[in-house]
Design a protein around this nucleic acid. Sequence first.
DNA 1: TACAAAATCGAAAACGTTTTCGGTAAAATC
DNA 2: GATTTTACCGAAAACGTTTTCGATTTTGTA
Lengths: 339, 339
Amino acid sequence: MKPATLKDIAEHLGISVTTVSKALKDYPDVSKKTKALVKELAQTLNYKPNAFAVNLRMETSNTIGLIIPEIVHHFFSSVIKGIISQAEKKGYLVIILQSNESYELEKKQIDLLMSKRVDGILISLANGTADFKHLNDVIEQGKPLVMFDKIAKLVNCSKVIIDDRKAAYNATQHLIDTGCKRIAHFRGPLLPQNSIDRFLGYKKALEDNGMSYDPSLVYIFDNMTFEVGEMFAQKILREHPDVDGIFVNTDLVAIGAITEFNRNGVKIPEDISIVGFSNWFMSSAITPSLTTIDQPGFEMGKMAFKQLFKELKAKKKKKPIVPKIIELETSLVKRDSTK
Amino acid sequence: MKPATLKDIAEHLGISVTTVSKALKDYPDVSKKTKALVKELAQTLNYKPNAFAVNLRMETSNTIGLIIPEIVHHFFSSVIKGIISQAEKKGYLVIILQSNESYELEKKQIDLLMSKRVDGILISLANGTADFKHLNDVIEQGKPLVMFDKIAKLVNCSKVIIDDRKAAYNATQHLIDTGCKRIAHFRGPLLPQNSIDRFLGYKKALEDNGMSYDPSLVYIFDNMTFEVGEMFAQKILREHPDVDGIFVNTDLVAIGAITEFNRNGVKIPEDISIVGFSNWFMSSAITPSLTTIDQPGFEMGKMAFKQLFKELKAKKKKKPIVPKIIELETSLVKRDSTK
DNA sequence: TACAAAATCGAAAACGTTTTCGGTAAAATC
DNA sequence: GATTTTACCGAAAACGTTTTCGATTTTGTA
């Protein structure tokens, strides 16, 4: 009960494999009559081309690889959805790997994808990734590579990002505009570019408004969890009771902080104003609802695939790949956690 | 600059392709000396077997397909993570497709995966799936298939599930035990089995406790969103002000309801007690925190892949596949939304 | 030295497809 | 009726691997 092959159809019809193949692909040098016969038999035998053979012959599989630091995460799963939806439209399949924020794993996974000969790779870097050889290898081998969200500026490939610096600047400016005088920042790990950029935006906004930058008001977390938010909120109350505004690197941590402040009777936004980042849908549900930066995950995924697709097409036509930086718009969503 | 092949190595060393292939796989009929030479050259040429050729020859790709109704969802993304983590350990890659709760799309995607000749398929059904031909076709073709969470009882394949009926029964019983006299139920769509089972558990608990079942207290939603929760909460206040307990099919909707009740000054759990389902991590963060049923998503993903892996191994050894039902334990997590 | 046994190697087929290129038959042209 | 054109078809190579089976060489034994 093996699946039918071209050979089966050919023997059934007493013609050659070549003609069958061409008939199914509507080559002009096959008569209408033969085409009809072949197509009909293919239908009844439920013929499906053997993808393995096609891959080998065409040196392509219409499959791309996606490496992402963490799947269980609203922003990232939105990106995945964007990627898959777009890939499906263009007839591509997506193999997903999770780096778990580990550089070592990320490197292995790149190797794995290369050895599986995916047509291209989409990646959002692990926090710990500081060496980029594995990525440059991919590019050197002529395989299209597009980075998104957590990128490395030094790698010469296409990137889909937001202007983290500007967005963070706007978030901080909003705190200042609504009267905050002493603004803390809960930030992510030292390495990833967007964590750095958001911090720089925060700092710049302070400086542009003549407010002194105080390093002791910057709290650094390694993994963004709800609990970290609770913990940092406690720390703020203990160490800096004069703080009246916080710009938090990511909504989940901000919501942890809000919960902890609520628990301690701290009034938001009267006592402390908070701005998050990402516009996780839960941010509108929490009390008080969270003012935040809207970061378009689904759109980012779509764009990342679209760019990769362009490069895949360019490669097929033996045209050179020109890296492109795509910057998506963000916006400040004002809610009840700021005045 | 094409990647090296066995032929390249063979020519370099003046030996046959056969010997090179066998040397790399440590066949006993290749001398140690030759093996050493081959392996060294393979190393320096950075030889990687052409996966396409291996796939064709071995009729297997060490790749499985995963069809899931919705990716941006805490429970499902946890399942995905469980599947991928386990698959990676066994050297399998996972292609993910999203059915978007559409039966039509689900059918197409099954076809796509079959034509791509994945080694096996994992699936959680779309809500609308009532016809199972596409699934039975997969089984008939001898391709391992494992269903999880949203399953079809009538399809004869392995399944990884929880006892939705029992869990719902326990949830409802908890409401009764804490003094609720009139208990509503927010349930999911009519078709999927777990939606049915949770409803049946709710009903059975009422009956076992001598409480009459009132159909007007059952609210049905099509897509589980935060907003549905808000809407149903309003409805309850309008239509059934005497309700003092609600068992909600899923946490997200429950949290929507809690938010709406908070907004209207309804006290939880004093006026209305609420029990959710899933133990979404946000449930512990909301105020009041949500009593709910813990549903082990990551574990479910792991188990689903493990079962599929067993069947893949059985198939390789030409042994028959024996469908197995794996039931995971759930537990009631008591929090502040019930007395 | 002769012979059996063990060690080592390679030719060739197979997986199923795509595509080039040459060949034959039918139709069109003169 | 001879020749050119067009329509249609198929042989064969190629993609890179795995594996069977037979051949050759080396080693061991008497």
